[in-house]
Amino acid sequence: TLFEALYDYEARTEDDLSFHKGEKFQILNSSEGDWWEVRSLTTGETGYIPSPYLAPV
Rank of each mutant, 00 (worst) to 15 (best):
T1K: 12
T1C: 13
L2F: 11
L2W: 10
L2Y: 11
F3P: 00
F3G: 04
E4M: 11
E4R: 05
A5E: 01
A5C: 04
A5W: 01
L6T: 06
L6P: 03
L6Q: 07
L6F: 04
Y7R: 10
Y7E: 10
Y7D: 09
Y7Q: 11
Y7V: 11
D8A: 06
D8V: 01
D8T: 07
D8N: 08
D8W: 04
Y9E: 01
Y9S: 02
E10Q: 13
E10R: 09
A11G: 13
A11V: 02
A11R: 08
R12K: 13
R12M: 13
R12V: 14
T13K: 13
T13Y: 15
T13P: 05
E14V: 10
E14R: 08
D15V: 13
D15Q: 14
D15E: 12
D15R: 15
D16R: 13
L17F: 15
L17S: 02
L17K: 05
S18Q: 04
S18A: 07
S18R: 04
F19A: 10
F19G: 01
F19I: 09
H20W: 08
H20A: 12
K21L: 05
K21M: 08
K21N: 03
K21Y: 05
G22Y: 05
G22M: 02
G22F: 05
E23A: 05
K24I: 15
K24P: 03
K24S: 05
F25E: 00
F25Q: 00
F25I: 01
F25Y: 01
F25P: 00
I27E: 00
I27K: 08
I27S: 02
L28T: 04
L28Y: 03
L28I: 12
L28M: 08
L28E: 02
N29K: 07
N29Q: 08
N29L: 05
N29T: 08
N29Y: 06
S31V: 10
S31N: 11
S31C: 12
S31P: 09
E32F: 12
E32R: 15
D34G: 11
W35D: 05
W36G: 00
W36P: 00
W36T: 04
E37H: 13
E37K: 09
V38W: 00
R39Q: 12
R39Y: 11
R39F: 09
S40W: 02
S40Q: 08
L41C: 12
L41N: 04
T42D: 11
T42G: 07
T42V: 11
T42M: 10
T43Y: 01
T43V: 00
T43A: 01
T43R: 03
G44R: 03
G44E: 04
E45H: 12
E45C: 11
E45F: 11
E45M: 15
E45T: 10
E45R: 14
E45N: 12
E45A: 14
T46V: 14
T46L: 07
G47W: 03
G47S: 02
Y48S: 06
Y48R: 14
Y48L: 12
I49T: 04
I49S: 02
I49R: 00
I49L: 06
I49P: 00
P50M: 12
P50V: 03
P50D: 04
P50G: 06
S51L: 06
S51V: 11
P52T: 15
Y53Q: 04
Y53P: 02
L54E: 03
L54A: 04
L54G: 03
P56V: 09
P56K: 05
V57C: 05
V57Q: 06
V57A: 09
